[in-house]
């Protein structure tokens, strides 16, 4: 799960003027900048690849951005995934980013609601994500949206050389 924000000057957030739409190629620099502000690392190649995969208007992949008067204030990325182990396909959110200036105005919730609406239209009944146990802010955010522990447990093992 990726979480981004940016510090650059933007207009004061006004929920009535915010709009969520599918990302265009021209949004790539803003998304890269927003992500770089959060991670401290500019990853244009990574996001270009993600754009090609998720913003290509495939019916089961979603790359949405939130904007206000032309400012990109946030984004969310996800897809419908078919799972193994007996689970039917579900929506999967793998990245969300909100500008710090736009926080506490419901923008993260708006982005999440929008991608959930698209998942629902794609015919799935659940949305899932995976987070680091110490990502307290993100965990609290997704919990506040009603997400709870699901029927799977993530397991891993270090592969010794």
């Amino acid at each position: 799960m990726e979480m981004s924000h940016r510090k650059t000057e933007i207009a004061a957030p006004d929920p009535s003027e915010m709009r969520v739409r599918p990302a265009h190629a021209s949004d790539l620099p803003a998304v890269v900048a927003l992500d770089a502000e959060n991670t401290g690392e500019a990853r244009p190649a990574y996001w270009k690849d993600r754009f090609e995969w998720y913003a290509g208007r495939q019916p089961d992949r979603f790359f949405l951005v939130a904007e206000q008067r032309g400012d990109t204030l946030g984004f969310i990325v996800g897809e419908v995934r078919a799972w193994e182990f007996g689970s039917p396909p579900s929506g999967w959110v793998f990245a969300i980013g909100v500008s710090p200036r736009a926080r506490l105005h419901g923008l993260g919730s708006l982005l999440f609601d929008e991608i959930c609406a698209r998942f629902r239209s794609a015919g799935v009944q659940h949305v899932r994500t995976m987070l680091a146990k110490d990502a307290h802010l993100l965990l609290s955010f997704f919990r506040s949206l009603g997400m709870m522990g699901g029927p799977f447990i993530q397991l891993e093992k270090r592969l010794e050389p």
């Binding site: 182990f85 965990l139 919990r143």
Partner: peptide, 29 residues
């Protein structure tokens, strides 16, 4: 991780929501 991610505001939402319908277990289960 679970207890530290649930604020009182979130807990109040959980309290006030009707319990969800029992989810079908994975086929493996």
């Amino acid at each position: 991780a679970t207890l530290s991610s649930i604020t009182l505001a979130t807990m109040l939402k959980i309290v006030n929501e009707p319990p969800p319908a029992e989810a079908a277990p994975p086929k493996s289960a």
